[in-house]
Amino acid sequence: MIRPRVLPRARKVQKVPFVELYAGRLQGVVSSGSDDERVYVSYFEAGTGNFYCSTNNNRPCGGLRGSPCKHLVELLNEGVLQYGPARVIAYLGLQQAEPDKIKTGGELLRFIKGGPHKVEAGMVFSRFLTYLQYVSVAPTGAPLPDMVWFVR
C-alpha cells in the first residue's frame, strides 16, 4: 500500500489556491498580496525555464521585470510543498538542482534560466475550474467497496 505524502506544512490555500504540474508547466493561481480582489495566473515552463505572471484578463504583473515576481516565487514554494522537490525538479528539468538539498521552492529560482514569455491565462484558469469540479460532484451514501485500496 502506498502511504500518502505528509506535507511538511499545510498548503497556503488563501495565497496560492491552485498549483499543478501539467502540460509541461508548473502553473497555478496566486492571490494578490495587496488587493483582495485581484488574482494572478502564473507558470514556469519545463525545459526552457520561461515564466509568466498576469491577471486573468491577460494584463502582465507589474512585478515581472525580467525575473520572476513574488507571485511566481510563491507558486514555486507551494509547488515544491505539494509535490516534493524531486518531482518539481524532474518535471521542470532542472538538472543542476539536487533534490536532497532543496527545502523550499525559492531555492530553485537560481536554476531557472528562462525569461518572461507570455501565455494566455485562460488556459490555467480553466484548469482551475476543472479541478474545482471535483468539489461539485454530489456526495454519496452508496457503498464504494473499491475505496478499501485507498488508506492514509
Binding site: 498548503r11 490555500v13 505539494q82 479541478y131 474545482l132 471535483y134 468539489v135 460532484v137 456526495p139 454519496t140 451514501g141 452508496a142 457503498p143 464504494l144 475505496m147
Partner: peptide, 26 residues
C-alpha cells in the same frame, strides 16, 4: 451491517475540511 458516506474533494481539502464535506451526506 456496514454503511459508508463519501464525498468528492481536491487534494488541499484535508483534516477539518473533510468534516464539512461529509456533513452534507452523513
Amino acid at each position: 451491517v456496514r454503511t459508508q458516506v463519501s464525498a468528492f474533494k481536491v487534494d488541499v481539502l484535508q483534516g477539518d475540511d473533510i468534516a464539512g464535506l461529509l456533513n452534507e451526506v452523513g
